[in-house]
């Protein structure tokens, strides 16, 4: 399998004691939207900076389009990036900011700047200086800059941070459109996991500098799918029954609640078996976990 972006043992150390990113192996295929999830300080931005060349690599390699070393360095020009806050010249207009980058990369095509601004919905900003832009407009201009040069990979670090719901929705639509219409592979990090789950096709969870797991959208949905909640006044008596039924993945949440994470085809079986063992059940229902719940649970399991 050829990956468009692959990191092997990517590591970033500050001095001898601090390891910000620890042997991270990321695999990204053409056309995917990769959601990079992690808490503050988990190492998301540092990883992205290393991939883009903004930060030095202490150990490990970054492969782009199957190439490593110097060849990969040359191919970095096919990455467009928006890392942390968008870097913009505040006294220039949106047009001038994009024009500056176009000059830098040697793009002279007529109407190119207008097209880019249209994609991100900033074509009508005229002579308004960037310092007078809203946060959402600045973020979109940051994406516009990342799009200059028609990149194959777009690296977006927290692009929806601080945006209002409408701004978030606009960015989401823009990313999806770019992915579908231009076949741009997107690597995106965000804290707003529910938003990520709306657009990403695969995910990587980073915790304390280590890539804890990589999973596809389907796998994540599967993990978030459901748990069966059993409400009973005697959880202790219910547990042997659940064991007998072959369920192993359950958790006593409080004095009246048990959550069963194993696949249960028929909840009435659970009720019948508990009733047969004289365990009173007040209710049984399916509960879907949010992506956030899954993430928090995953992280806390890791800590345990």
């Amino acid at each position: 399998m050829e990956y468009i972006l692959k990191t092997d043992g990517l590591t970033k150390r500050y001095g001898k004691k601090i390891t910000a990113v620890d042997h991270v192996n990321i695999r990204l295929k053409q056309g995917e939207i990769y959601g990079f999830i992690g808490r503050n300080g988990a190492g998301k931005t540092t990883t992205m900076k290393m991939i883009c060349g903004l930060a030095g690599i202490s150990e490990g390699t970054v492969s782009l389009f199957g190439k490593t070393g110097r060849e990969a360095e040359e191919l970095k020009s096919r990455i467009g990036c928006l890392i942390e806050n968008p870097g913009l010249y505040l006294n220039m207009t949106a047009y001038e900011n994009v024009k500056a980058k176009c000059i830098c990369v040697g793009i002279k095509k007529k109407g190119y700047i207008e097209d880019i601004l249209k994609i991100v919905g900033l074509s009508d900003t005229g002579k308004k200086q960037v310092k007078n832009f809203s946060l959402g407009m600045k973020q979109r201009l940051g994406i516009a800059l990342a799009l200059v040069g028609d990149p194959d990979i777009l690296m977006l670090d927290e692009p929806i941070n601080g945006l209002d719901p409408q701004g978030i929705s606009e960015i989401r639509e823009t990313i999806l459109r770019l992915n579908k219409e231009r076949n741009i592979t997107v690597f995106i990090s965000s804290h707003i996991l529910e938003e990520l789950s709306k657009i990403c096709t695969c995910y990587g969870i980073i915790e304390k500098g280590r890539l804890a797991c990589e999973l596809s959208h389907d796998e994540l949905m599967d993990k978030c799918k459901s748990c069966v909640v059993v409400m009973t006044d005697n959880p202790e008596a219910a547990l042997p029954v659940l064991d007998k039924m072959g369920y192993q993945n359950y958790k006593v949440v409080d004095k009246t609640t048990i959550e069963i994470y194993d696949n249960i085809d028929n909840t009435s079986d659970v009720i019948q078996n508990l009733a047969a063992s004289m365990v009173s059940v007040s209710s049984v229902y399916e509960k879907n976990k949010s992506v956030e719940d899954f993430f928090l649970q995953f992280i806390s399991n890791g800590e345990e």
Binding site: C52, S77, C81, E84, P86, G87, L88, L90, C104, G149
Partner: peptide, 16 residues
């Protein structure tokens, strides 16, 4: 300083 402080360089770094 402007180039370094505004962070515009981040948008260029993969191209240059």
């Amino acid at each position: 300083c402007d180039e370094l402080n505004t962070g515009y360089i981040k948008a260029l770094i993969t191209k240059i």
